[in-house]
Amino acid sequence: MSIDWAVVAMAIPLLAQGALTSLRIAALAGLLGLAGGVALGLIALGGFTPARLAVRAYVDFIRGTPLLIQIFIVFFGLPMLGWRPGEYLSGVIALSLNSAGYIAEIVRGAVGSIERGQTEAAQSIGLTRGKILLHVLLPQAIRPMTPALTNDLITLVKNTSLLSVISVYELTRSGQAIIASHFAPLEIFALLALYYYLIISVLAYISRLIERKLPAW
């Protein structure tokens, strides 16, 4: 058995296209997931019990079911509700919903671990729950949250590969297309692995930089 270098050379630029799509999806889903996750996390810490329980149930569902199934549910479920966003947007939505669930837990955990005296001091100057969360607790939670959020982002990038099952033309899917026409599975899967590895190495490096830049109090 020998390596088909011609296929490798041909695949590198094609896969780069797919990698860009994967990155775009991850960036979009990451931002939406972060916004949604912070919002859900704050609700989970808030005083309104029904909303808190709803978030709890949502997080349990997200963590308790495979992402692959969640992707199918969104992909086939949204059209049932009368909206056909297409596979690309469906994929972004599914990944956003998934990562929002995990980020909600990260936010809840980090904010909840801040010393009780901070809340009491804020209460003593008359702040109410929402303002305490927003102005006192959340800012202090950012640094302890960063490593967990980085992990989540890395997982998100890898999870974009699952969108290949709903025909989103991201990195994995574009590799599969090359395999189908040229039949060089090992070369292509190795290349795919290399692409993901490089992307994630860069992300991990950036997040270490950010972590070092964040103030430690």
Binding site: E115, G117, P215, W217
Partner: peptide, 13 residues
């Protein structure tokens, strides 16, 4: 009421 805590409880950020 003003409240001054034993451990200050200033906002570190």
């Amino acid at each position: 009421f003003g409240f001054v805590f034993q451990r200050f409880n200033l906002f570190p950020h």
